[in-house]
Design a protein around this nucleic acid. Structure first.
Lengths: 294, 294
DNA sequence: AACCGTTATCGGTATTATCTATTTAACTGA
DNA sequence: TCAGTTAAATAGATAATACCGATAACGGTT
């Protein structure tokens, strides 16, 4: 017994006629006869008494009819709800982000998105780039915003916004406008943990300039951007930090920016997701919003 | 989209595997693939992301799954409820009956039936045999109990119990043990209306004895057995009435029985129903009970 | 690079849904 | 009572599709 049988039955019941039903459903009358016969066999009871020119529903048909209608309705509702799920922008949005985008980009973008689509609820998870990327790979997150790419043919990266890393320090630690890389290795230096996108970017920069962090005078390795910033403010050493994160400290002259070899350290933030996973509709909409809004 | 698709989808979702589902459903894996593809096309969305060795349900699948289970369940319930309708003895029992069976037979039989099957509710409609039979023909009643048969190839009659019609009168009207038909025609006579089974039976009796009610001295035609009985008691005339209806009056000597030509007027009560209508199960059970109990 | 486990695709077969034409049955009206 | 009408059942044929086995393609593992 499937839905098709029930639809045919319902139509026959409604019109009390095989022929009328066949007209409504655009199916030939013998086909209707056949289906009703099959339904009767599968339910092991007669559904209509054939009286010759007319038919009459049996007690079983009376029981079946309302329930059949209900199921037919439910099935239509089901289709609509699935369609709704793939067209409406609502539901949970769990976004992973590394420190800088999670702190200085996402809140604003999430706010403006929620203003347009009030039925979404954000959950923003902040971890370093490596951890976020790993969670995406493990299907623990559907997408993330990170400051470093790892090589993986499973992942799809979309560039979102450019950021600049700047060398900062208190005047006591470094009181000059520029510095060469060679000289920098002698300065007490603060760095992030290995998984950090900021660190990754800086190390790429060093490599490009034939250098490595092993030459540096590392006074501390710290687990977050703000920890590094606080340490730098305290005069513990110099550090390379996203401009976004230190703009305030630069404005208030607590920290000073020092150019390295007169170069800029640029990096991109990326939206990262698995190539093969289809994103729920609210995620797609948010990703679009992100690309426009950054 | 039909139930089969939903069942396959539910199994795939449950195992997160096309192959496991194919094993559970005893269908080949390519068939599963095909059905999921069809379902995806008909819903116009992807339901599982094929990640290579494994699959992951999409947001749409998450929406679909619980609702699909619900509908599958509902459909099974539906089957059970239809089966229940054709096996359980419960519900309304609308029985038509002519005066004598409706008054002297049905109440007792209905009572004993309801004791065995408390979930039935009787509705007993009393009209004369002709009207009851007509209502059966018009599908206004599913069955009736009547004292006269009409010729119709649509109707099915089952004999239930034998009854006897007796000529009764007050001693003032008729003070003798027997009477001949010829003499009876001179006696003031009370009769029922045309549709009455009692009258039909009596006229058949007259015809068999080469007589007709037109020869009779009809003082009144009355619309019910009890009206005729009351009129007879009042001494308005003689009447032919079911023995069941006048037993009390005979016992109390209010009325006296007079034999006609030393003959007995017998008749049967019949269960009447349309040959082509299938009776609901409680009706079938009651009809069986009737035949046993009479 | 070779090997597994999983899904997709292909080509063919079996089933069944559907059609038209016709028959059967019951009611209608002359 | 009998032709005419209407509706459902049946028969015979065809088209759609459900299903299968074999195998390719793909990702992950060794």
């Amino acid at each position: 017994m499937d839905i098709h049988h029930l639809k045919i039955f319902a139509s026959v019941y409604k019109y009390k006629s095989f022929t009328r039903a066949s007209e409504e459903l655009h199916i030939s009358q013998p086909t209707i006869s056949e289906h009703i016969k099959n339904l009767e066999n599968s339910l092991d009871c007669r559904l209509f008494d054939r009286l010759g020119r007319s038919i009459m529903p049996t007690a079983e048909a009376e029981v079946l009819y309302p329930k059949a209608l209900q199921i037919i309705d439910d099935l239509e509702l089901l289709q609509e709800e699935v369609t709704a799920a793939s067209t409406m922008i609502k539901g949970k949005l769990v976004i992973g982000a590394s420190t800088i985008p999670g702190t200085y980009i996402l809140p604003g973008v999430a706010y403006s998105f929620k203003k347009q689509h009030p039925d979404v609820a954000f959950e923003i998870l902040i971890e370093d780039s490596a951890r976020i990327t790993n969670m995406v790979l493990q299907h623990e997150l559907l997408c993330g915003i990170v400051g470093a790419r790892i090589v993986s043919d499973k992942l799809d990266y979309t560039p979102l916004i450019e950021d600049e890393l700047v060398l900062v320090a208190t005047p006591k630690v470094l009181n000059q406008k520029t510095i060469t890389l060679e000289k920098l290795t002698n300065i007490p230096f603060l760095q992030r943990e290995t998984g950090s996108g900021t660190r990754q970017t800086f190390e790429n920069f060093l490599e490009k300039n034939n250098c490595t962090s092993q030459n540096f005078n590392i006074v501390a390795t710290l687990g977050s951007t703000s920890a590094v910033k606080q340490a730098a403010k305290a005069g513990l050493g110099a550090a390379v930090i996203s401009r976004m994160a230190v703009q305030e400290a630069l404005d208030s002259r607590v920290l000073k920016e020092v150019r390295i070899n007169n170069l800029k350290i640029r990096r991109n933030f990326y939206l990262v997701r698995q190539k093969k996973r289809t994103l729920p509709h609210q995620y797609l909409a948010f990703c679009l919003h992100l690309r426009k809004g950054c």
